[in-house]
């Protein structure tokens, strides 16, 4: 895997290997917070930031602590703890020093701790043996891909807000159907690049 250009990985993470549309990861907040475009955009930005930052930290911990000690199997525990602690810390910092950022983004931070894609990115980067630059590109791309997905979903939901739906399909039901249709559309990108 050493030979793929980070830019390729970045683009692939957004389009061909989109976390939502090809892995169906990070669905909980994708389904529940995708009602308004501004909110979705805020959450997306926060996810991108946290995913990238934790990927960097986890990469360093993995490469310089876990690998030399042959404790690769501890990565699940260690990655999760790192993510949880990092999100806590960043929330405190943002709340204290960047109040306006806190009111637009910070409020989503607790939601992100439990977003699967944050963990998935850290895990995939070590499974696929990415280099540092590749990992960063992959993390940022995955975050942006998720943002793209949730903003698109919010847009679609706003368009159908006033339409009459069958009772059983309201809310998560129709969201999953739209997700499926969008995923089909994203399959169209899949021949362009392969990163795994």
């Amino acid at each position: 895997m050493m030979d793929i250009n980070p830019t390729t990985i970045f683009l692939a993470a957004i389009f061909t290997n989109n976390m939502i549309f090809s892995y169906f990861l990070g669905m909980c907040s994708f389904i529940s917070v995708s009602n308004e475009i501004p909110t979705s955009l805020g959450l997306g930005q926060a996810v991108t930031f946290v995913t990238t930052a934790t990927a960097i930290i986890n990469y360093i911990i993995y490469k310089y602590v876990l690998l030399p000690l042959h404790l690769e199997y501890l990565r699940f525990v260690v990655f999760i703890i790192t993510i949880a602690a990092f999100v806590q810390l960043i929330e405190m910092v943002v709340e204290r020093y960047f109040p306006s950022l806190y009111y637009s983004l910070g409020i989503f931070l607790p939601l992100i701790t439990v977003n699967c894609i944050v963990f998935a990115v850290s895990l995939f980067m070590v499974i696929r043996n990415y280099t540092f630059l590749q990992s960063v590109a992959y993390a940022a791309g995955s975050g942006l891909g998720w943002t793209l997905a949730i903003v698109a979903m919010a847009g679609a939901k706003q368009r159908i807000k006033n339409n009459k739906l069958p009772k059983g399909l309201e809310g998560p039901g129709i969201t999953l159907i739209i997700t499926g249709l969008m995923a089909l559309a994203f399959v169209g990108f899949s021949g362009i690049v392969q990163i795994q």
């Binding site: 602590v65 000690l69 404790l71 501890l74 790192t82 602690a85 806590q88 810390l89």
Partner: peptide, 14 residues
């Protein structure tokens, strides 16, 4: 040892 020191470190930090 690793798990303990790692969580301990983060706890202190937090």
């Amino acid at each position: 040892a690793i798990v303990t020191s790692f969580t301990g470190l983060l706890a202190v930090l937090l």
